[in-house]
């Protein structure tokens, strides 16, 4: 196991490269989730404001 982690002395390079790969792709996959929540919250806010306006004018 230690041999595997050491990667023949290149462990730091190999594992940091793989870490970058995973972190960037994980962020890239999580980003749409956050955006989606923000867009939908935005929409609800706009709907609420419109309903309030309609009630006020009615």
């Amino acid at each position: 196991m230690n041999d595997f982690l050491a990667m023949g002395g290149y462990g730091a390079y190999v594992w940091s490269a793989y870490a970058v790969f995973f972190v960037v792709l994980a962020l890239e996959a999580l980003a749409p989730r956050a955006t989606r929540r923000r867009v939908l919250a935005d929409l609800r806010g706009r709907l609420k404001r419109r309903d309030a306006r309609n009630e006020a004018s009615a």
Binding site: M7, G8, G9, Y10, G11, Y13, V14, A17, Y18
Partner: peptide, 11 residues
């Protein structure tokens, strides 16, 4: 290149 070449699999 020893084990350093394994970066190829993502690069």
């Amino acid at each position: 290149q020893g084990d350093a070449y394994r970066i190829i699999f993502i690069h």
